[in-house]
Design a protein around this nucleic acid. Structure first.
Length: 493
RNA sequence: GGCGACGUAGCCAAGCGGUAAGGCAGAGGUCUGCAAAACCUUUAUUCAGCGGUUCAAAUCCGCUCGUCGCCUCCA
């Protein structure tokens, strides 16, 4: 499989350092607020990556950190008059609540910065010994110009950056581009003892220290949002390579942003929706389908319409699975194992059904092209629906039923790699109906009574009366469907 | 100012040198007393524009226009 590497700006064949074992480190959240849809994308993208690597047969060690000490946490805690540690803990809990609601897998190791102060101090000491860092006025800084390849990951030169310098002038630094590894404590701030006095870690050092501890100096994949490329990942790279004298992450994966009206969703712009905001309106699987409708590196524009489209698509997939289940059940109770009928599924459609897994994998192997992979899934749905329709109207051949049943299982398995289509289809559709029913002013019994009245009128061919009932129900968003086996109803969304 | 990404049907989105996947919406059809729902079929001579390379370009190169991002905390 191929993965796009930010470092080389190319898709590269994925070959883990240790055979059969993929080690990956993803930058997690800074816990001072509820997570928004951008965080959901990050979590779900790497959730999909991990699931797919495991599907491919790799043993995966997935590390994702929590930044539980930093300026924003301290500021927010001060604002609310609470302890910064408690604030961080609280939003880690909220993060888990959201992740569980999204059905995202837990990382194998979820280290917190504050629990690795010692490791960070050791790393900073390594850097000082190598001449790559220097203490200054209670702080410790990284000597950027000493790391000759600085800027490789983000593709920028030190000179270029100075041109547009929005860098704060800091008297303590030898060079304005130097970044802080350790910050001396200001009065009232959380602090830890260190060889340079009391203080706290800079932002970037935690990831270098924790990845080294849990994955080793070199590992396979380092991931995060595109906004982390500079300065966070560039600095991590400088720290780790500088301290360990060996390559750091082999491959850097960065996902695109979630936008609203083509602008980046962010706290500072105030144009964000939290995960729980969205999950109040749509099921998690709908959100996942939406997120995977675009390849992970491209921007993803959030809108009500896009979510509704995803919802319709998800329902269609479940309808298809329910159709297969219904057909198989009918056949079981019907002909009782007697091979009725001849195959009606054409050669071309059979081939499409049988190649579904192959096509899905080819798309996913190409830098996790979930958009294309989903296209194949929907294409499968189309062919399966067609087959269901054909079988429904005649005696089903055993081989056809088996093909459909198997295809349904495959469809659900593959969709599961994206975390969708994981519910029992019958139950999903029933729940949807129940939820909608709860939102209208009629009970199921009242609806059924009205349907009986209407059917009585229809017997007498009193179309005016029957249509009146239908219209009345429609004002309550109840739609009637007259089928060969009687009248069923649904609630309009 | 520096660096980078993107621009494909009404909307979303794949394709990245061999002649336009898929989804939503729309249209036609099957079904129906009429509907609805469901399902089927269908919808881009063309890929922002202009040049160039090539037997062949949405795909490669150059320029122009437009949108967005990073360079400051950010997923």
């Amino acid at each position: 499989m191929k993965i796009y590497n930010t470092l080389t700006r190319k898709k590269e064949t994925f070959v883990p350092l240790e055979e059969g074992h993929a080690r990956l480190y993803v930058c997690g959240i800074t816990s001072y607020d509820y997570c928004h849809i951008g965080h959901a994308r990050s979590a779900l993208v790497f959730d999909m990556v991990v699931r797919y690597l495991r599907y491919h047969g790799y043993r995966v060690t997935f590390v994702r950190n929590f930044t539980d000490i930093d300026d924003k946490i301290i500021a927010r805690a001060a604002e609310q008059g609470v302890d910064s540690k408690q604030l961080a803990e609280r939003f880690i809990d909220e993060f888990y609540t959201d992740m569980d609601a999204l059905g995202a897998l837990r990382a194998d190791i979820e280290p917190k910065a504050t629990e690795h102060i010692q490791e960070m101090i050791e790393l900073v000491q390594d850097l000082i010994e190598k001449g790559l860092a220097y203490p200054s006025g209670g702080d410790v800084y990284y000597r950027v110009r000493r790391f000759t390849t600085y800027g490789t990951l983000s593709g920028r030169k030190l000179e270029d950056m100075q041109a547009g310098a929005r860098i704060d002038v800091n008297e303590q630094k030898e060079d304005p581009m130097d970044f802080v590894l350790w910050k001396g404590a200001k009065p009232g701030e959380p602090k830890w003892a260190s060889p340079w006095g009391e203080g706290r870690p800079g932002w970037h050092i935690e990831c270098s220290a924790m990845s080294r501890k849990y994955l080793g100096a070199s590992f396979d994949i380092h991931g995060g949002g595109k906004d982390l490329i500079f300065p966070h990942h560039e600095n991590e790279l400088a720290q780790s390579v500088g301290a360990n004298d060996c390559s750091f992450a082999n491959l850097w994966m960065h996902h695109g942003f979630v936008t609203i009206k083509d602008e980046k969703m962010s706290k500072s712009l105030g144009n964000f929706l939290t995960i729980r905001d969205v999950l109040r309106e749509y099921p998690a699987e709908t959100l996942r389908l939406f997120i995977f409708s675009t390849q992970y590196r491209n921007p993803l524009d959030f809108s009500e319409t896009a979510l509704q489209d995803a919802q319709v698509g998800l329902d269609r997939m479940y309808d298809c699975l329910a159709g297969i289940t219904g057909l198989v059940q009918a056949a079981d109770t019907g002909s009782g194992g007697v091979d009725a009928g001849i195959s009606v599924i054409g050669q071309k459609d059979r081939k499409k059904i049988e190649s579904l897994r192959q096509r899905f994998e080819t798309a996913m192997d190409n830098d996790f092209n979930t958009a294309q992979a989903m296209g194949h899934l929907f294409d499968g749905v189309k062919v399966l629906n067609k087959a269901c329709r054909l079988l429904d109207s005649q005696q089903a051949a055993v081989e056809d039923l088996e093909l459909l049943q198997q295809a349904g299982v495959t469809l659900q398995e593959l969709a599961g790699l994206l975390g969708v289509l994981q519910q029992d289809p019958m139950q999903y559709l029933q729940e949807k109906k129940d939820n909608l029913l709860a939102s209208i002013s009629l009970s199921e019994e009242e609806i059924n009574n009205l349907i009986e009245d209407r059917n009585a009128a229809r017997e007498k061919k009193d179309w005016d009366a029957s249509d009146a009932v239908r219209d009345k129900l429609l004002t309550h968003n109840v739609e009637l469907h007259d089928g060969p086996y009687g009248t069923t109803w649904d609630v309009k969304a």
